[in-house]
Design a protein around this nucleic acid. Structure first.
Length: 854
RNA sequence: GCGGGCGUGGUGAAAUUGGUAAACACAACAGACUUAAAAUCUGUCGGCCGUUAGGCCUUGCCGGUUCAAGUCCGGCCGCCCGCACCA
C-alpha cells in the first residue's frame, strides 16, 4: 500500500488549477457575487503562521461559497510601502524597491504552496506607480472637496522612525512599530477630515451586524461621542471670553476655578512675559503620556492671576489656572472645575486650597434630614468626588432637579443668555497622513513661495518616487535629493519645490479592496466593477486593526463616495477577526530565550518552560510555515489551523497537534485506497429500501453534510472538522459488502471528498480522481443532504427522577406522551429511584426527556 | 478609573441556546503486529466507592429562579483584551 505522497499530489493539483485558470473570475450578472478578502500582507520577507491561519480561513470560505454557486472574488496582493524596507535597504546596502520585490517573489511562492484559490491575475503591489497614481488623484479630489487640508499642529513624533504618527498609531504613548516613547512636535502636516464623518461612522456601526461586537465597541470608544455644553466665561481683564467644554453643565454652580491646557493660547501669550509660567509649560509638555507617567503624575497648576465671571452669579469671579491635566487636543483645551463632581478637580482643589461646593446630592439622601450633614461634611472633608448623577443642590434655579433635567435647563438658560450652547463632542481627531519617509507614495503638492501649496495638475500624475536616493542619513531622503524636489509652480511658473513628505501607508490599504474589483483598470477602478463586487462580503484579519485600518477604510470609502468614485459607504459587510498563533516559550538558566529546537537540545532539566505566548521573533517561539508545509504538506497545515480552536480564539501551536492532523490525512487516503476496488465494482446508483447498517451509515453521511454546511455558514470550522472525523471513523468501521452497500459507500466517499474540499483541497481532488472522476472537485457543486435521511425513526430519550438522570429509553420519534411516561416508569433504574412513591408530576419534553417528580 | 470578554478533564475544546456535561482530538497508560524500532491497529482514560450491577460527586466560589442550570438572575474571586488626566 502506498503512503500518501503529498509532495507530488499537492504540486500536481496546484498546477492543474493554474493551467485551467480555475479561480479566475469575471463579473457575471447572472450569478450572485461573493467577495472574500483576507487582509493583504506586508512583504516583510517570509510568510509566518499568522498568515497561514488567515489565508486558510479565507480559502475555506472562498471554496465553500464557490461550491455553493456564488461567483467568488478572492484576490491577493501586497501592502508594499513601509519603513522596514528602508531599514533593510540600509542594512543590506540595497534599495527598498529591490528588497520589497524580492520579498514579494519569495512570499508569493510560499503562498502558492498552500493551494489557495486566488485569482492571481488581480495581484497588486501598492508601491507601483500603476497603483499609487490613483491615490494621488484621490487626494487631489479630497482637496477639492475640502476633505484634505494642511495645518500647523502639535503632532506625535517618533524619534526612532524619524516621522510623524497618527493618533491611532500611538499605543500607550509609544510608536506602534518602533515602541519608542512619542514626543510632541509642532509641524505643518496634511490631514484628512475623518471628523466630517464622526457621526455617520458611529451610527452606521449598528448596521454592521456581521462584525464582531468587540470591534464595533472599540470603534465606538475611539470615536468617543459625548453630549454636553460649550460655556463662555467673560474675562475680567478684557472683553474676551474663555470658552470651555463640559459634559456636566448641571454642576456649573459648583465651579471653583478654571483650568486651561499648557498650550492654550492664553497660557502661551502670558508665558512670553513670564519665565516662571514658561518653565511650567515646558514641564507639562515634557510629561509622558504613557500609563505609568499619567498615574504617577501629580496634579499641578499655575495661577495666571486672570479671572472670569460666572455666567449665572455675577458677583462670583473664578481664577484661571494652567493645569497639567488639561489636554489641548480635546474640547476647547479649557475646563471649568467643579471639585465636588470630578476627582481631578477635587485633587487639585485640595492641593491649592480652593473651594469645594457640593452641587449634586445622592438620590437616597436628597431631601432627607441627613442631607445637610452630608453636604457639610463633603465640603470640608471629601477626598473622593461624587461623580454620579443625583439631585441638584446649592444651585439656585436647578435645586431639586435630577441631573439630566438640570442639564437640559442649564443649557436652555445659557442659550437664552448667550453664554453657551448644547453641543456634541467627539474624541476622534483628523487623520494626519504626512510621513517624513522615502518609501511611500509622494504627496502630489508643489510648494510655491508666492502661491502656497499648489496641487500637482492631474495630467502630471503620477508624481513618481525617484529611484536614486541616499538612505541612512538622518532626515527625509526626498528632502535631501538634489534634483527631484525642484520644479516650477504650476500656477505662476516660478521655481518651486515639491512636497517631500509621503502618505501614511494606511492610505494604500484604505482602498485596495476596491482596486481588486478592477485591478488592471486605467482608472482607480471602474464604477461598474465596484458596483458589482463591493462591498467585501467577508473580510478576515487580525484584531490589531480594529481602530486603524478598519476605521480608515470606512472613512475612505465615504470620502470616495462623496467624490463620485463609488456608491457605498461601508466597505466590509462581514468581518471575522482571527486569534493569534501561540507557542510555548523556553528559557535557559540565564534567562535567555531559546528556540524550540535549542530547548530540546539542551534537555528538560536545564530549560524553563514558559507559558504559551504569541509567536514572536524576540521570544524565539516561532515555527516556520515553510518547514511545516515541506514536512507534512499544505493540507495538514490547513487542517491543523482549523481543527482545535474557533477562528477568533488564540491557537496553540503544538508539534503533536500537527502530527495528529498529518495522521488523519494519511488515514483518509488509506481508507480510499482500501475501498477503491469495492467502489469501482459498484456502478449502480444508491436505491431506496435500505436497512440495517447500510441505512445507518447513509443517514450519518447525510446528517454530516447537513451539519457541516451549518458549521461552515457560521465559521465553526473546528466543529465541522470534528463532525467529519466522526464520519470517517464510522466509514472505517463500516465493513459491509454487496451492491447496495458499495453504492452507499461510493456516495459516502464522494460526499466526504466534497465536504473536506474547502479545508483540504489537494486531498479532495485526489480522492475525487481516485473515485474515477475526470472533472475537478473544485468545480463540483456543494452536496445536498436528503432531508428524509436527517430524521430518525427512533430517538433516545433521557429519563430523570427529580431532575436526576437515571437512564435512557428508545422511543419512536414523536410518540405520544402516555407512551413516553409508561416506558419511563418501567425503566429499572427509574423504578429504583422512585422507590414506590407516587409521582406528583411527570414532565415530558418530546423526543428529549422525561422527568418524574416524586 | 471606564468599556468588553472569559473561567468546563492532564491539554485544545464540544454541548441542538434551559433538557443525557465532556462530542472530536492531543497527551498518557495497556495490549496486538515486529528480532527491534517507526508506522498502523485495539482497549482504558473527570474524581471517589464497588469484583460486577450500580451509586455518590463534578462546569472558578456563594446564593437564587426552575420539574430541570455549564447555560438565566444577584453577589464575590481570578485571568485576558481595548481605551484612558477625554472634562
Amino acid at each position: 500500500m502506498s503512503r500518501y505522497n503529498f509532495k507530488e499530489t499537492e504540486a500536481k493539483w496546484q498546477k492543474v488549477w493554474d493551467d485551467n485558470a480555475t479561480f479566475k473570475v469575471t463579473e457575471d450578472s447572472h450569478k450572485e457575487k461573493y467577495y472574500v478578502l483576507e487582509m493583504f500582507p506586508y512583504p516583510s520577507g517570509r510568510i509566518h503562521m499568522g498568515h497561514v491561519r488567515n489565508y486558510t480561513l479565507g480559502d475555506v470560505v472562498a471554496r465553500y461559497k464557490r461550491a455553493q454557486g456564488f461567483n467568488v472574488l478572492h484576490p491577493m496582493g501586497w501592502d508594499a510601502f513601509g519603513l522596514p524596507a528602508e531599514n533593510a535597504a540600509i542594512q543590506n546596502n540595497s534599495h527598498p524597491a529591490e528588497w520589497t520585490m524580492h520579498n514579494i517573489d519569495t512570499m508569493k511562492a510560499q503562498l502558492k504552496t498552500m493551494g489557495l484559490s486566488y485569482d492571481w491575475d488581480r495581484e497588486i503591489a501598492t508601491c507601483t506607480p500603476e497603483y499609487y497614481k490613483h491615490e494621488q488623484k484621490m487626494f487631489l479630489d479630497f482637496l477639492k472637496k475640502g476633505l484634505a487640508y494642511k495645518k500647523e499642529s502639535w503632532v506625535n513624533w517618533d524619534p526612532v522612525e524619524h516621522t510623524v504618527l497618527a493618533n491611532e498609531q500611538v499605543i500607550d504613548g509609544k510608536g506602534w512599530r518602533s515602541g519608542a516613547p512619542v514626543e510632541k512636535k509642532q509641524l505643518s502636516q496634511w490631514f484628512l477630515k475623518i471628523t466630517a464623518y464622526s457621526d455617520d461612522l458611529l451610527e452606521e456601526l449598528d448596521r454592521l451586524k456581521r462584525w464582531p461586537e468587540k470591534v464595533r465597541i472599540m470603534q465606538e470608544n475611539w470615536i468617543g461621542r459625548s453630549e454636553g455644553a460649550r460655556v463662555f466665561f467673560r474675562r475680567t481683564d478684557c472683553d474676551e471670553v474663555l470658552e470651555i467644554y463640559t459634559t456636566r453643565p448641571d454642576t456649573l454652580f459648583g465651579a471653583s476655578f478654571m483650568a486651561i491646557a499648557a498650550n492654550h493660547p492664553i497660557a502661551l501669550e502670558l508665558a512670553q512675559n513670564n519665565t516662571e509660567l514658561d518653565a511650567f509649560i515646558q514641564e507639562c509638555n515634557a510629561l509622558g503620556t504613557s500609563e505609568a507617567a499619567i498615574e504617577s503624575a501629580e496634579k499641578k497648576g499655575f495661577d495666571t492671576g486672570l479671572k472670569v465671571k460666572h455666567p449665572f452669579i455675577d458677583s462670583l469671579e473664578l481664577p484661571i489656572y494652567v493645569a497639567n491635566f488639561v489636554l489641548m487636543e480635546y474640547g476647547t483645551g479649557a475646563i471649568f472645575a467643579c471639585p465636588a463632581g470630578d476627582q481631578r478637580d477635587l485633587d487639585f482643589a485640595r492641593k491649592y486650597d480652593l473651594p469645594v461646593i457640593p452641587v449634586v446630592a445622592p438620590k437616597d439622601i436628597a431631601g432627607t434630614d441627613e442631607e445637610q450633614a452630608w453636604l457639610d461634611d463633603f465640603a470640608t472633608n471629601a477626598t473622593e468626588a461624587f461623580t454620579d448623577e443625583g439631585i441638584a443642590v446649592n444651585s439656585e434655579f436647578l435645586n431639586g432637579l435630577a441631573s439630566h433635567e438640570a442639564k437640559r435647563q442649564v443649557i436652555e438658560k445659557l442659550e437664552v443668555l448667550g453664554s453657551g450652547q448644547g453641543t456634541v463632542q467627539y474624541r476622534l481627531r483628523d487623520w494626519g497622513i504626512s510621513r517624513q519617509r522615502y518609501w511611500g507614495c509622494p504627496i502630489p503638492i508643489i510648494l510655491c513661495a508666492d502661491c502656497g501649496a499648489v496641487p500637482v495638475p492631474e495630467d502630471q500624475l503620477p508624481v513618481e518616487l525617484p529611484h536614486d536616493v541616499s538612505l541612512g542619513e538622518a532626515g527625509n531622503p526626498l528632502d535631501r535629493h538634489p534634483t527631484w524636489k525642484h520644479t516650477t509652480c504650476p500656477s505662476c511658473g516660478k521655481p518651486a519645490t515639491r512636497e517631500t513628505d509621503t502618505f501614511d501607508t494606511f492610505f494604500e490599504s484604505s482602498w485596495y479592496f476596491a482596486r481588486f474589483a478592477d485591478a488592471r483598470s486605467e482608472q482607480a477602478f471602474s464604477k461598474s466593477a465596484v458596483d458589482y463586487w463591493l462591498p467585501v462580503d467577508q473580510y478576515i484579519g487580525g484584531i490589531e486593526h480594529a481602530v486603524l485600518h478598519l476605521l480608515y477604510s470606512r472613512f475612505f470609502t465615504r470620502a470616495l463616495k462623496d467624490c463620485g468614485y463609488l456608491n457605498i459607504k461601508e466597505p466590509f459587510a462581514g468581518l471575522m477577526t482571527q486569534g493569534m498563533i501561540c507557542h510555548e516559550t523556553y528559557q535557559d538558566p540565564d534567562g535567555k530565550w531559546l528556540t524550540p529546537d535549542e530547548a530540546e537540545g539542551l534537555g528538560p532539566e536545564k530549560v524553563t518552560v514558559g507559558r504559551s505566548e504569541k509567536m514572536s521573533k524576540s521570544k524565539k517561539n516561532v515555527v516556520d510555515p515553510e518547514l511545516i508545509i515541506g514536512t507534512y504538506g499544505a493540507d495538514t497545515a490547513r487542517l491543523f489551523m482549523l481543527s482545535d480552536s474557533p477562528p477568533d480564539r488564540d491557537l496553540d501551536w503544538t508539534d503533536a497537534g500537527v502530527e495528529g492532523a498529518w495522521r488523519y490525512v494519511g488515514r483518509v487516503w488509506r481508507m480510499v485506497e482500501d475501498n477503491q476496488s469495492r467502489m469501482a465494482a459498484s456502478g449502480t446508483p444508491v436505491s431506496g429500501g435500505l436497512d440495517g447498517d447500510v441505512l445507518a451509515i447513509r443517514r450519518q453521511v447525510h446528517k454530516t453534510v447537513h451539519a457541516v454546511t451549518g458549521d461552515l455558514d457560521n465559521f465553526h470550522f473546528n466543529k465541522a472538522v470534528a463532525r467529519i472525523r466522526e464520519l470517517t471513523n464510522a466509514l472505517e468501521a463500516f465493513k459491509t459488502d454487496g451492491g447496495a452497500a458499495n453504492a452507499v459507500r461510493r456516495e459516502a466517499f464522494e460526499m466526504t471528498a466534497k465536504i473536506i474540499n474547502p479545508m483540504m483541497p489537494h486531498l479532495a481532488e485526489e480522492m475525487w480522481h481516485a473515485l474515477g472522476h475526470h472533472s475537478l472537485i473544485a468545480d463540483e457543486p456543494w452536496p445536498q443532504a436528503d432531508p428524509s435521511l436527517l430524521i430518525d425513526d427512533t430517538v433516545t430519550v433521557a429519563v430523570q427522577v427529580n431532575g436526576k438522570m437515571r437512564g435512557t429509553i428508545e422511543l419512536p420519534k414523536d410518540c405520544d406522551q402516555s407512551q413516553a411516561e409508561a416506558e419511563a416508569l418501567a425503566l429499572d433504574t427509574a423504578v429504583a429511584a422512585i422507590a414506590g412513591k407516587t409521582p406528583r408530576k411527570i414532565i415530558v419534553v418530546p423526543n428529549r426527556i422525561v422527568n418524574v417528580v416524586v
